[in-house]
Structures are given as C-alpha cells and as structure tokens.
Amino acid sequence: MAQRMKHKWGMVVDIDKCTGCQACVVACQSENNIPLNTEDSFHQRRAMEWIRVERYWEVPDEYRDRPEEAPFQDVKARFMPVLCQHCENAPCEPVCPVFATYHNDEGMNVQVYNRCVGTRYCANNCPYQVRFFNFWEPVWPERLRNQLNPDVTVRSRGVMEKCTFCVQRVRRAETKIEGQEDGQITDKSLAEGNFMPACVQACPTNTLIFGDLEDPDSQVSRLKDDPRHYKLLENIGTEPNVIYLKKIDPRRKEDEAHG
C-alpha cells in the first residue's frame, strides 16, 4: 500500500455564484440522516441544518448607516451558505470535557457521537452557530426508513452534531484511491468517484468547491488566495478551513477588474 498522503481538506464558497437554491441543504439532509425539520422545530429554533443558506440584504455603502432609506432597486438579496468552518483553531474543541470533538490530522473538526454527553458548551463557544443539539429523539416517518444512509450514524437525543465534510465519503475516497497502486487523490478523482461532500456534489452553480488544501494543483488551493477571498469572523483568530469569495459588485470600483 502506498504511503498515505497528508491531506488538509478545505472548501471554497464563491458567494458570487450562489443563487440560494438550497440544493446543498437538501443533499446534506438526506446524506447525513438529519432528522426532518418540521415547522415546529423551526419555531422552537431547534432546526438542524448542517449547511444552511443565510440570506441578507445588501445596500450601497452610502446607506450603510440607514439601510431602510436605500432605494429598493439598490437593495440586493445575498445568499451565504454557512457550514462548519472546520477551524484550525476551533473554539469548540478545547471546551469539550469528554473529547467528543477534536481536530483530526486532516484539518477536519470531527464529532464523536458516542462520547458526547451533551453539555452543549461547544455550541455556546461556536461563533458560527453551526453546532446542533438533538433536543428530541429523532424520528422518521415509516416510509422514509429505507432512505437512511447506512454509512452515517443516526444520532440519539442529547448529542451534538455538525457538518463532517461528509467524512464517510472522504474516507471511502482514501481507501479506494490511495489503496491502489499510484493512487492519488485529485479534484478529478474525487469528482469522478462521487467522493465529494453531498452539498458540493449537489451545487448546480459550483458555488461550493471541495478539495485538498495541501495539494497545490487542487482548485481550492488555487482559489484560496484569490483577491476576493475572506474568512468568516476572521478577527477572532479561529482560522477556518472554509474560504469565502466575496460577491462581485460591478458598481464597486475595486470590483471592476472582475467585472
């Protein structure tokens, strides 16, 4: 067997391409056995969306202090897919008393459901609010029983869960590709082998791009230093592995180049 590669998985989210279609949300929901979000669970603010599309309104800079006065044609709806940022310096990790969440050597922030006792400290300490608690025992209607993904654990009530970068697919990629002679994980092999995270695979506009940040040829490595790149809440020093590319606004001077 070939020497195992050192990976650092990451994602690039190109806000410019996002149409807010929610395909990623649905794909994630069905891939990862996430309980159904009913109207009730939304009202209780206990809905689970490992990836969610946040919508916000953008007004021209001159109206920043008084957004309600901006002319309606200049107010733009914007979409921002938010998922676990898999921070290198994750605030949720050191606070878990039972090591239920930790950073693995491939740049992923992982959750061990078995160990989790549900103190919910990690959720408090997550600035992105991407950690979800099972307030109730998850139930699926009888007709959806066969829809559950056998590769993913069904979590019981009382545990935390969050985006895993579809670790089951990544693992499959590692065993299948790296197990072969001269096997090497590339963007192409990930895409061909159906090993991309569900959300990436489902995204119709290629807003979400997944890959190995250690591999200089991968698309994420090339995009991570794009002039449009930024990270969410960069100032608190969490060092996310999810990189955002900002919206190109032709009205803005510095964006004209991307035009």
């Binding site: 310096n89 605030p91 050191p94 100032n235 608190i236 020093g237």
Partner: peptide
C-alpha cells in the same frame, strides 16, 4: 491566553 484572540495575544 485561553481565548486565543489575536488582539489579546
């Protein structure tokens, strides 16, 4: 120290 906030560091 524990917070690891860049400013505080």
């Amino acid at each position: 120290w524990y917070g690891r906030d860049p400013t505080e560091q």
